[in-house]
Design a protein around this nucleic acid. Sequence first.
DNA 1: ATCACAACCGAACAGAGTGTTCGGTACTAT
DNA 2: ATAGTACCGAACACTCTGTTCGGTTGTGAT
Lengths: 180, 180
Amino acid sequence: MDRRRKKTRKAVFEAFTGLLEKKSYSNISVQEIIDAADIGRSTFYAHFETKDELLRALCTEIFEHVFSDDLRRENTHDFSTQKKDIVAEVTHILYHLNDSRTYIKSILSCESGEVFMKFFREYLVQLFSGELEKHSSDVPREYMLNHLVCDFSETVRWWMNHEQYSAEDISRFFFSAAPF
Amino acid sequence: MDRRRKKTRKAVFEAFTGLLEKKSYSNISVQEIIDAADIGRSTFYAHFETKDELLRALCTEIFEHVFSDDLRRENTHDFSTQKKDIVAEVTHILYHLNDSRTYIKSILSCESGEVFMKFFREYLVQLFSGELEKHSSDVPREYMLNHLVCDFSETVRWWMNHEQYSAEDISRFFFSAAPF
DNA sequence: ATCACAACCGAACAGAGTGTTCGGTACTAT
DNA sequence: ATAGTACCGAACACTCTGTTCGGTTGTGAT
């Protein structure tokens, strides 16, 4: 990718998350992002169609990082590593999430958090749907899957505002309270 | 309250929820609500300062209904009824939620859902914080409280899209999966 | 039935934000 | 060196917002 495009993209992301720390998503105008990023008006629209798309792009970028290992493992059909147990996998994801903490906190701080959480839950459905096979109960499978996904995503949301805990702590909390 | 005010208020709420079924919150303009409610522009602004305030007013109205008994009980210092067990209480709230199902589904269908969920969680914190005393664990109390609140609010969100289940079913699912 | 009051109407207005266009400039990759 | 790409920013048409105000109609109390 052209060095200029990368630079512009980065400037926009940083301006955007910076603004999210100060004010809510809906109160941020495209013009403010443009000014903060110090780019031309038409340049912004050459990269992103709307503010919403910018948010989605940012979420995608974050999750590509967080779930990068899982995705890679899916492509290489290496069954030995696929059998990693769920506890290790969850802890691993928590480590990655911690890396993007600053971005995530900004996004979660207002309405835009809903978009982030939606993205997040979509990834988690894949993560937990396999795990669910092992358990049986008189509760609909679909309910349990949604339950696990929400447990974990909300655990992460909580964690983002409680920095004192480590990834291992959070993993332990999660498995203590979740119905595994 | 003046009959006209009641009528207008009702017309706005109905127009708003009707629109929410068709398109997302942020894509609904005040003018569309005004047209759908068939009222004058200035009339809308005489009732609600902004679209956001309308959403909050609608949420407040819903929760005043859903939690009406709890609130009443709080005022009358009747300790005999205060000791109602949590299962009955939860089931009771689910019944009330079912009454407002149409409204709630509309609100939850897009970004406005976040506002609804936020309101909802605030009420639930009160409901569950007492219940938590009874349990002990090596997990922070604050985490457990948030966990219960999210479990329940997300259970309700799930329920709204799975009409085939009764309030009793949902109550059972919730207590099966929650760490009680 | 009357009457003071409150609610509603809707046109008009200023202001803010959006998304596009276009001619010109500057950078990049090869 | 050069062709292609990205950026700039002014200008434009458009939509939406929130307010104002003079006039109309409905309401509740007496």
